[in-house]
Design a protein around this nucleic acid. Sequence first.
DNA 1: TCGGATCTGGGCAGAATGCGCAATGGATGT
DNA 2: ACATCCATTGCGCATTCTGCCCAGATCCGA
Lengths: 156, 156
Amino acid sequence: MKVDELDAKIVRLFTEEQRMSVLEASRILKVARATVQARLDRMIANGVIARWAPEPEPRAFGFPVVAFCFLTINQDLGHDAVSKTLAEIPEVIEVHTVSGDSDLMARVAARSNSDLQRVLDIIMATKAVVRSSSVIALNTHFEGRTLPLLEAAARG
Amino acid sequence: MKVDELDAKIVRLFTEEQRMSVLEASRILKVARATVQARLDRMIANGVIARWAPEPEPRAFGFPVVAFCFLTINQDLGHDAVSKTLAEIPEVIEVHTVSGDSDLMARVAARSNSDLQRVLDIIMATKAVVRSSSVIALNTHFEGRTLPLLEAAARG
DNA sequence: TCGGATCTGGGCAGAATGCGCAATGGATGT
DNA sequence: ACATCCATTGCGCATTCTGCCCAGATCCGA
């Protein structure tokens, strides 16, 4: 979908002030309330705004460790079947099929480094994965920073 | 912070129905409105709810390609300085310091595979990075699935 | 130049919010 | 047993926002 600068400004407003109302946004941007409504509806309908929900942060409730695990899967099962199996483990936050030496990459949260071992054991115990190799995130500089990209897309 | 099952149910409600109001949530959960308010305020104050904002999805506005880039940084600069430099590139969505052979891992969005090359060139041109190696996400099975983990934390 | 899409400003009923309050209940420490 | 603290409850009230409708103005692409 094509987005323009007004779209980006709307998203920025609602991102920076979570208590922003549509009416208040329309006042700030000096457009009609119906316009803000319509833009939001359109962006949600087209998936430009994928979700708009409270985001639990594992670091804040006992899971300070994040690791990226590269998995080689059991070839008897497909990627989809394996990802479905992994989806049953709550510590698995994210799964992609990737290019390169491995088949899948998973983002995993854990209570500690030794707890990460426990989660990896659970993953291996499913028999869906035959090999894994992990990289631990020692420090997260930033995440989910999609707003600048939206603004870049809006400019041209 | 400690979360209980009511906290998790509240987050789940607001995640599944974006038009959920605090009043409606209190009716569904059969608790007082003030309780839902207080729980939300507490979770936001403690960072359990890290953000509550419209999430732009790069795939929906012209950036269907996602790659994870492992970067070796110029040792004259620190990790923080390099991540700040990377933060000026809108296509860089996420940056972590990681264990293993590389120094940083970055999530990068791009318009196409050849556009990814352009972004990588921009990254290298900063002179903050001396080597990079990328893994392309061919298929994203799921992302940002933190709710099951919150519920697990609430149970135990 | 025409037609469709978008933006505008307005109104209106219903709903939700922000705020304050006193009473209740449960857990804890002495 | 008792006092204390804190979360929860139910209530009311003024203010604000939403959802929905409309007619007219305006913009943009075919």
